[in-house]
Amino acid sequence: MKTLLKSLIVIGILVVSCAKNPFTGKSTMAFKKNSDIFPAAFQQYNQFLSENKVVKGTSDAKRIETIGMKIKAASERYLTANGYSDYLNDYKWEYNLVDSKEVNAWCMPGGKIVFYTGILPVCKDDAGIAAVMGHEVAHALANHGQQRMSAGLIQQFGAIGTALAAEKYLPKYQNEAMQAYGAASTVGGMLPFSRAHESEADMIGLTLMAIAGYDPINAVKVWERMSAQSEGKAPPEFLSTHPSNQTRIDELTALLPQAKAEAAKFGVTFK
């Protein structure tokens, strides 16, 4: 029981270790500082680049970098205007295009971004790239990697507590208890947590692309093209780390007026 109590105390400490999301004003889990996380992320990013074919000097590679810098500038404008001028001090932005058929893009903590060539046809044009770039930059700005680490640790401590309780009270069913906990904590906890991050990144990214001068309606168009391409291939939403394509289309469409209103504060308007 003492070990279980200690585990619960640690969980409690982690839960109340919070940071503030400058885009939503909400408190988020943060048991490690960015200064602890970023160096390892930068190292992993460099290792990935060394092991994959990075596209350099092409028009597409230049577009990725140019649009990335515009989205970064938009984030700086937003954060400075809202009293977070020092927020990006530890970020080291980098944008690379990697030769791969995979339809994907991602961002490491601290602003290290990769676009795969396979996603460019879905992006279609600069505005489509800006939509995806805004989403990936948003993940970095909202420290979603930091939060996933926090949630993962809480899940691990919950597993320890479940194992100890099952050993004491249900010794014959310990394996079943652990399996049930694993399924429940994943489907009922980690997956919804991940989907919430994706929706939040969509919302923030929509605002950033608008401030950068790209009509946010193009984010909706990207996901319409993504939906058409992946029809019948996606798992049910409740078993996925991402919202369904239709959910994203609906949410982005509803957020268009908000994104345009934010952009208008910076003198950027759309017809």
Rank of each mutant, 00 (worst) to 15 (best):
F266T: 02
K233E: 10
S59L: 02
S194N: 12
Y45T: 09
S27Y: 14
A180S: 10
L14H: 15
F38D: 03
Q246T: 08
S185D: 13
Q43N: 08
T269M: 01
L4Q: 12
Q229S: 07
V10T: 12
L255K: 09
C107T: 13
N96F: 01
L8T: 14
R195C: 03
E176N: 04
L256H: 01
G205Y: 07
I119N: 00
P243W: 05
H135W: 06
L14V: 07
I67F: 15
L239W: 05
S35W: 07
A263M: 09
W93V: 10
D250S: 10
F42Y: 15
I154M: 12
N82K: 12
V16R: 13
N21H: 07
V16K: 15
Q179S: 13
G232Y: 07
K53H: 07
V15G: 03
G213N: 10
S59K: 08
S230C: 03
K265V: 01
P109D: 06
V10N: 04
T66P: 02
M133H: 04
S240D: 14
E51N: 07
F238S: 08
N89H: 12
P39N: 13
Y45L: 04
N96Q: 11
G68N: 02
M203T: 01
V122G: 01
P243R: 13
E200A: 11
V132H: 11
F266L: 09
T117V: 04
L5D: 06
A140E: 05
A127K: 11
R148Y: 09
Q146T: 11
K112S: 11
L164T: 08
V122D: 02
S185L: 04
A184W: 04
G118K: 00
N218R: 15
